[in-house]
Design a binder for these strands. Sequence first.
DNA 1: GTCCAGGGCCTAC
DNA 2: GTAGGCCATGGA
Length: 218
Amino acid sequence: MTGLETIFEKLTTTYGSLYWWPAETPFEVAIGAILTQNTNWKNVEMAITNLRDEQTLTPQTIAELPRQKLEQLIRPSGFFRQKTERLQLLVEHLQSRHNNQLEQLLSQPIDVARNELLQLKGIGPETADSILLYAGGLPSFVVDAYTRRLFERLGFLCGNESYEQIRTLFMDQLPTDSTLFNEYHALIVEHCKRFCRKRPLCIDCPLSDICIKANVSS
DNA sequence: GTCCAGGGCCTAC
DNA sequence: GTAGGCCATGGA
């Protein structure tokens, strides 16, 4: 068992199965992935609730919204002007290339789908991987700020690795299994929300026995 | 009032 | 190729 698998076992023993992502449709996952960029998930929930109340959680309905209306609905998620543009570019792409079906984009080979997402302005590697994994069920490991922070503290990372380097590390050392990748990322987020903030709260942390920076103070 | 949150783009060097 | 600035809201 690799070190990364050991960490997974400890996390899953502590938190159980989390069954992410909190969304009702693949397209809603993609919306959430864009809205959560550098933003607290609670704020994203408010924005998605606004979209749901307006019955605008499909590519077609988003595409039909005037820009100012969409800005107003997603305002609680912050960076609302940028995110409005990013959502509009995504739905325009789905409309022109995939008959308004995100599922069609995600039915392609994973590298093809990933590169297509990365071509879109406003969709970087983390957002693309979140969409691939949580909307498409494709085995693409998601690296986020929590992943970097936790595995830096655990001694797996030194802090200057690129996104792709970290993703490759996980994908090389874990079985290619979308269910595992799904659960692992969810567990990292769940753990970090409790114990691995910028100002760490390490009392009772289930990983404190192996965390080389468990007692770091801010 | 300050810090922080499930990034990504652009510019300057 | 990369460091730094910028984008914005709401809760702790």
